[in-house]
Nucleic acid binder design. Structure first.
Lengths: 246, 246
DNA sequence: GCAAAAGTGTTGTCCTTACACCCATGC
DNA sequence: GCATGGGTGTAAGGACAACACTTTTGC
């Protein structure tokens, strides 16, 4: 990066000795991370939001985010936000997109890096005292601060795509789950209805589900078997996809 | 974003009136964009690089990048770099990933947003006087400055995936191309060999290729037909993919 | 015994793969 | 006329979509 201003055309060997001096003159921008934390409950895909603490966004909902500290890696910053807000570590987290519209923040230029995170709602005790931290329906939540609706949409699109290519869904479910729960998850995220028999066939043929021998409890119908996902086996068997399709 | 420090637990309605004051106190980081400019020539996928102008990276190759200006959108910054470097506008450009390792730049913390760009080498006259601007073989180029090898790898992975799902390849070819050229492109990017007959069948069945009625010239064998890609038809017929596969 | 969801198999269609021969051109 | 790559068709196998009935449990 950074050759243009300091190396006019034709000047071939004007090497810059002191990189620190160079960087010192770079323009600087405030940088934040925002976490789009997805959860799944009552057969709905949810996203974790708080009330904005800005007067201009009074009453609006906001993603969980924070400034990036000095010399802090973005991934670390996102994990920190998650940890501070949910107390959870070992959570699935992925950088999705960086948003930089100059007027996206009312306080002036702020660039934000959006992370998507998937967690199992049941593992997470909300401390509701803080800024009305709540789960919201992903597709219907409105009244969002900043460009956070756009950020959620981008991350939701990312999720829809990724869940079809990678076994991400299991991060949203309890460790042991029934096939019905799994199918409900896919239907909620993809916003489609799937054939139960074909769905089962598909997952069984992948051969990554471990039969726990246990069954659902407290259901008022025939209980379904509970499975775990065999992450280890999946990791070993990853294959590279070749298939042109558009 | 940004609620943590200013809204201790339990304090519910401490709304911040002056957003600008808030942002003023945010830590700031130098922000750059780096463009991974892919081209295709001699049946090889190429990437456009210059010599680094930093003493510590003397002789190493570097991506084309620049600092992001005040109040400049990242996409705009990337287009600006492309325009300044190649003189080309209307080029395919896509944000891929943001790199933030604290020590990725020898001059101190610099966060960079990587963009992938695809362009037709034939449309582009290199001004070789500037920092030895050159096309390099994507898979074999070494001796890269900064973390630029990692950035290229990330963008190359992105390209391999995207070209199978979207008609990006045509941005790397002349407007009129033969099916052989198209297949060579796919083989070069995906690093596989494809069956010629099945490849043709696949593309013809998509029905996005327009027969120009013209033929290759200056080839020393039977000339192939030249086609154009029907972008308009493709845009109209975009379909949403549902298919779980991992 | 009834409601509600679990569990299971088959068939047709389409897509993908593998594969071999003739054709047009330059030299 | 020969070398080079262009152009085409078919058959087999695998994946996906559509579809109905029996089983188990709670009440």
């Amino acid at each position: 990066m950074k050759n243009l201003k300091n190396a006019p055309a034709g000047e071939k060997t004007a090497l810059i000795g002191n990189a620190a001096l160079l960087v010192q003159d770079y323009p600087r921008v405030p940088l934040t991370v925002d976490c789009v934390i997805f959860g799944f409950e009552e057969n709905k895909l949810k996203v974790l939001l708080i009330r904005s603490d800005l007067e201009v966004y009074k009453g609006k909902w906001s993603l969980l985010g924070d400034v990036v500290h000095e010399n802090e890696d973005l991934d670390d910053a996102a994990y920190r936000v998650l940890q501070e807000r949910t107390g959870m570590t070992n959570v699935y987290l992925k950088q999705v997109h960086t948003f930089s519209s100059p007027h996206r923040h009312p306080g002036g230029r702020v660039v934000t890096v959006a992370y998507a995170s998937l967690l199992n709602i049941k593992h997470h005790e909300l401390c509701i005292t803080e800024n009305e931290l709540h789960w919201h329906n992903v597709r219907t939540v409105r009244d969002m601060a900043f460009d956070h609706r756009e950020i959620i949409d981008t991350c939701y699109n990312w999720l829809q795509k990724s869940i079809q290519e990678h076994p991400l869904g299991f991060n949203l479910l309890p460790e042991k789950f029934s096939l019905r729960e799994l199918q409900n998850l896919y239907e909620a995220i993809l916003n489609v209805e799937l054939d139960r028999r074909n769905f089962r066939k598909k997952f069984f043929s992948m051969d990554f589900l471990i039969d726990t021998g246990e069954f659902e409890e407290d259901v008022k119908h025939r209980p379904g078997k509970l499975y775990r996902f065999d992450f280890a086996k999946y990791e070993k068997s990853k294959r590279k996809w070749i298939g042109i399709d558009f």
